[in-house]
Write a protein that binds this DNA or RNA. Structure first.
Lengths: 334, 334
DNA sequence: TGAACCCATGAGAGCGCTCTCATGCCCGTT
DNA sequence: AACGGGCATGAGAGCGCTCTCATGGGTTCA
C-alpha cells in the first residue's frame, strides 16, 4: 500500500504551510480564496483524508460516541428493539461526521472498566440503551462529567441525567380509550411485570382511562412480557371473567399469546373479544387477525437521544427529559 | 473534570521512565518483576487508562473494525437479521480489545467516501453485511489492501475476497427432504427472486433434492420474499396444482403469506398441505401452526466473519470462504 | 582479572494534526 | 510620508504514546 498522504504532503503540493491546509480543512475563514482553491485541488489530487487519530489527539475530542447496551444475549437477539435503536442511531449520525462505537457491557465487572474506557477519552459521549434499574452506570458517567443520554426513564429520578422516554402511560390510555370507544364495557388487561417502568406505567395508563369514565379497573392479570405468559394470563382471565369483551395487553408478544388462548377458547377476535396490544412489533402485522396496537416511536427515540447527546457534547446545558408520544395503530383485532 | 493521568504521570509516580511504563502496559517481557509491580501499583492508584488516539497514532493501528451496512432504512428496520449480525459481532469482540464502529453507507456516493475513510486508517479492517450484487465496495477495499470479510457469497467470484456464506443449497435440500420423508409426493415450491444468490441457491437446493429421488421439480411459483408475494404465489400454486400436498417456501415471511392463503382456501396445515419455510425468524415460532423451517446460523456467521477478519488483520493470509451449515427446525407445519 | 556479552532501563525522536503566536504585507488614516 | 491596524500565512510547540538506540551494571568465560 502506498503511504498515505499527510498534511505535509498536501502542504508541499499546494505550496503552502501545514497550518494553512489545516485551516482549509477546518473551514477557517482566514484563508484567501485562491489559496483555498489551491489546497482543495491538492487534496483532491492526492486523495488526502485526515487521520482521525492524530486529529483527536490534538483536539482532545474523538468525534465519536458510544452506544452502550446491556445483556445483548440470545434473549434480546430476537427482539428487534435494540437493532432498531442501533440502526436509527447510526442513521441519525450520517453526515455529522460522528462515529458510532458499539459497546457491550454485560456484567457489572465490565462497568467500572467501561467508565474508565469512556473517561479515557475514547468517546465524547454515551448513549445508554436498554437500561436496568439497578444499573450503576448512569451515575458513574454522570459523576465523571461525561455527556450521557439514557433511553427510558430511570426508576429513581437522577437530577442532571438526560433521558428520552416513551409515553407509556399515555399509550396505555390510548389503548383503553380505543376499547371504550368501541362500546366495550367488560374490559380486562394483561399487565406486564410491575418491577419495570414500562409494566408499571402501562397499567396505570390503563387504570387512568377507565377511572376517567368512572369505571373500576378490576379484571387484571399479570404476565412477564413473554408470549407464553400472555397465553396463560388470557386463559386465567377468561376463567375468572367469562363475560369479558375486550383486553388491553401490555405488549404484543403477550397479545399474540392471548390471541391464541382466545382462539382455543372459541372466542372470535374482535367480534367476541377485542384485543389491543402494545409495541407494534413487526409480528403484529402478521397475526390472525392483524393486531391493533400502540406504536412505539423507537426510531424517534433513538434520533432524539442522539440529538440531545450531540448538543450536550457541543456544550449546551443538559436538556430536560423528553417524553415521546405514542400512537394507536388500528388493525383488525379491535 | 480533573485532567487525566498520562504515561508521564504514571512514570513519575512509579519512579521510572515513560518507556518502561509503556513496556509494562504492552506486556513486554523485558521488565523486572519489581518494576512491573511498582508500575502496576501506580497505574491502579492513578486510575490510568491509555489514550487510544495517541496509541493508534504511534502504532498506525486502531484496534477497531468497521461494520458496514447498506440501506438500513425502514425496510430493513423490521428485519432482525441486521440487528442480530450487529449484536453477534459486538459480542464476539468482547475481550479482544477491538472496537466496533458502525458505518452506514447508503448510496453509491458514500462509497468512495467510505473507501477513503477506511483507507485513512480509521479502522484496521472491514466487515461487510447485507451486500448488494452491484456493490463496488468489496472491490475498492480489496484493491486498497484493506482486510475485508463479506457476509454472503458475492454473485461474481472475487479472488482474494474472504467471505462467510450460509449453505442455502444445503438448507433448501434439507427442507425438501423433510417433505419427502413425510411421504409428501406432490410437492411445490415458492421460490425467491432469481437475481439474489439466496433465491437462486434455495431453488437449486430444492431441485437437487427432488431430482435425487427421481422427481421433477415442476410446480414452482415465484415471490419477492415479502409476505404478500408469498400469499399470492400460494394462491396461484393452488389454482394450478389443486392436488399439491406440500410446499417449500424460500423464506419465512412468504411462508406466513402462504399459510394465510392455505387457510383461506380451507386447507389444513400440515394435514392437507405441509409447509416448510426458511430463515427461522422469530415470527416463525408464533404462527398458526408454528412453522417448520430452516434455521440460519446468523450468530455463527457474524462470529466467523469477525474471527476471519481478526486473523487477517493479524497478518494471516486471506482465508478461504466459509460456508456454514443450516439446520432444520421441526415445528408443526410439516 | 579483563574482555565480551546480556538485559533492564532511559533518552529522545517521531506519529499527523491543531493552535498559538509571530511575521510581514497591504490598506487607510492623518 | 509615516504610522497603526487588519489579515493571511508560517513557524513551532505540543497532544500521549511507541519504538529505536544508547547506556550502564551485572554476569560469564577465558
Amino acid at each position: 500500500m502506498i503511504s498515505k498522504p499527510t498534511l505535509d504532503t498536501v502542504a508541499a503540493e499546494a505550496g503552502v504551510s501545514r497550518a494553512t491546509v489545516s485551516r482549509v480543512i477546518n473551514g477557517s475563514p482566514r484563508v484567501s480564496p485562491e489559496v483555498k482553491v489551491a489546497v482543495e485541488t491538492a487534496i483532491a489530487a492526492l486523495g488526502y483524508v485526515p487521520n482521525r487519530a492524530a486529529r483527536s489527539l490534538a483536539m482532545r475530542r474523538t468525534d465519536s460516541i458510544a452506544l452502550v447496551m446491556r445483556e445483548p444475549d440470545a434473549t434480546v437477539l430476537n427482539d428487534p428493539y435494540l437493532g432498531n435503536i442501533i440502526i436509527a442511531t447510526s442513521q441519525t449520525l450520517i453526515g455529522t461526521g460522528v462515529q458510532l462505537v458499539l459497546v457491550n457491557a454485560q456484567n457489572t465487572a465490565e462497568h467500572a472498566q467501561l467508565a474508565d474506557y469512556v473517561r479515557s477519552g475514547h468517546v465524547d459521549g454515551v448513549l445508554l440503551a436498554s437500561m436496568h434499574d439497578d444499573d450503576p452506570l448512569p451515575r458513574l458517567l454522570l459523576e465523571a462529567g461525561i455527556p450521557t443520554v439514557v433511553g427510558g426513564r430511570p426508576s429513581r429520578p437522577m437530577p442532571g441525567l438526560s433521558y428520552v422516554d416513551v409515553d407509556n402511560v399515555g399509550g396505555a390510555q390510548l389503548a383503553a380509550e380505543r376499547l371504550l370507544a368501541s362500546d366495550r364495557r367488560r374490559i380486562a388487561t394483561i399487565a406486564g411485570p410491575q418491577d419495570m417502568t414500562a409494566g408499571i406505567d402501562r397499567l396505570s395508563g390503563y387504570r387512568l382511562a377507565l377511572s376517567n369514565t368512572g369505571r373500576k379497573a378490576d379484571r387484571v392479570a399479570y404476565g412477564d412480557f413473554t408470549r407464553e405468559s400472555g397465553q396463560q394470563a388470557m386463559t386465567a382471565l377468561l376463567a375468572r371473567h367469562p363475560d369479558l369483551d375486550a383486553v388491553f395487553v401490555a405488549n404484543d408478544l403477550m397479545a399474540i399469546g392471548a390471541l391464541r388462548s382466545l382462539r382455543d377458547a372459541g372466542r372470535r377476535v374482535p367480534d367476541d373479544v377485542a384485543v389491543v396490544g402494545y409495541d407494534d412489533i413487526d409480528m403484529a402485522r402478521h397475526t390472525e387477525p392483524p393486531l391493533t396496537t400502540i406504536h412505539q416511536p423507537i426510531v424517534d427515540q433513538a434520533r432524539t437521544m442522539t440529538e440531545l447527546l450531540l448538543t450536550q457534547i457541543g456544550g449546551d446545558p443538559v436538556a430536560d427529559p423528553v417524553v415521546l408520544p405514542t400512537v394507536l395503530v388500528e388493525r383488525e383485532s379491535a
